[in-house]
Structures are given as structure tokens and as C-alpha cells.
Design a protein around this nucleic acid. Sequence first.
DNA 1: CGAAACTCCTGAGCGC
DNA 2: TGCGCTCAGGAGTTTC
Length: 270
Amino acid sequence: MPELPEVETIRRSLVDKLAHQTIQSVNIYCHHFRYPIDPQLTHTLKHKTIQTIARRGKYLLIYLNQGGLICHLGMSGSLHLVTADTPRKKHDHVEIQFSDYYLRFNDPRRFGLLLASDDFSKHPLLSHLGPEPLSHAFSSAYLQQQLYGKKQSIKQAIMDNKVVVGVGNIYANEALFRAGIHPLTVAGTLNQQQCDALTKAIKVTLRRAIKAGGTTLKDFVDSAGKPGYFQQQLFVYGRDNQLCYWCDSPIKSLRIGGRNSFYCPVCQTK
DNA sequence: CGAAACTCCTGAGCGC
DNA sequence: TGCGCTCAGGAGTTTC
């Protein structure tokens, strides 16, 4: 479900309410995720206080007064901040109780992840990640250097977390449209001008999506249950056979690396 | 080494 | 109404 803008939206909706809150107790109803949830987590988290909630790529980093918690929502995960009298829903697998709220981790497909970490910077899931797309480190020069010699398609390259984090299928399609680059272009052949356009397109696309509260394709909502509105600004994603807003040509789709890809055959060139 | 295929899992939507 | 099939926003691991 969530790409970077959705995770950032959730982070923002949680941080003010949960900062300085102390965990009263933790209930784990299902342990089986991408990695099994440590049964000790209940004891590890009890009476710990949340300091702040940060984000690295699509990972949420919950800083506690001692150690922290890494959370990833996978394809179908969501976090809901509810009152104690709210009944549990199907696939609410983990529940963290605070004095005023319950935070529930819901994940039908269980591709998500929840684990304790003493040092985020040294954690193997985080240590190899590329730069944040909205940071200065993600520049046109950096991108061109990363793409040098790469034979895979540019779409696959920008979805690679070692190149840049947080760009999933929706926003990869959208950013390539905005940059006028065909998704099948061999990554290593992009010139400086194209790298410039693509870097800017990724930043603009993600910033606008964050501003809109993320993209609600099916059921994305933030931790308070509010949907995102960026789907109204999608140029190509999910629009195959519909007309391009810029040139009126029909949007086409194809599969790249097993992922559905959308592009305008006129506006985007190789 | 890079790149592609495979893997985890449930649910929605489709054709029949 | 129901069955079987395909596909879905991710990404670590395995294989070639």
C-alpha cells in the first residue's frame, strides 16, 4: 500500500499525539510477519516512552527513551490510533496501549515488519539504503553517477532502494511521465539533462503527494482514518487507454520487472 | 558481480 | 452463488 508519501502522512498524523506518551502494554495477536515478531517485544516496550517518530525511506523509526522500534507497512499495512473502546478489526495483529489511545497495526497480507532495535544506524535493514529523495544528497549528479553502466530500465533503477529510497511503483511511473522519459529507457544511457529532469520530477511528485496526504487507491487512510487525495493528480498510473492530459494520446501500459507500468508513448521518449 | 526470479500472504475483481 | 484464476501499493533472498 504505502509509498514514501503515505508513510510520511502516517508519521505526521502520529508524531504529535504519541510523542512523550508512555507505553502501558503491548498485545500481539499474530506473530507471523515478514520476520516473526519477537514475543519479548511485549516486555521490551512496556513502560518505555516515545520520544519522536522519524522516517527512513518507507520505514517508520519510533525512538523510545531506550532503544527504538522499526515499523514497515509492506504492501497492505496500516496504523490506526483509536480510543480504547474501539473494537478490534480483522487483521489488527498488534496493539500498543497508551493512556489515552491504542495504536493498532493492521496488515492483511502480513508483508509488514515490526521489530525492536537498539541502534537504527547499524541495523542491516537500514544501513545499505540510498539517500532520501527529498534531501540534497539526492542530486542530478548523484543520480547520473549511480546510473552509470546500468543496463536495467530506468524505472527499475529508481525503484531500487540502493539508488534512492521511497520511490515505489506509483511514483516511479508518475515521475518518469513528468520528466518525459520512457520507463524502458536503459538507465545508463540517461544524459545529464534527463538526470536533471528526473531528479526534479521525483522531488516534485513526492512533495505534491505528501501535500495531498498520499494516494488512496483502494483503502489507504492515515492513522486517524483520513484518506489521501493525490490519486486526483495522477497523470498515468492506472490510466491505461485513457487520454494523456498533455497530448490527448492514449496512455499505454506494460510490465517491467513484474510491475505494471504506465506511460504516454508521445510525451515520454527513450 | 549485476540482474532477474522467487518468496512471503490475503483479498478484490473478473470470467465462466 | 461460487469456483478458479490473476493481480495488488514492497523488498529481502535466492539463483543464474
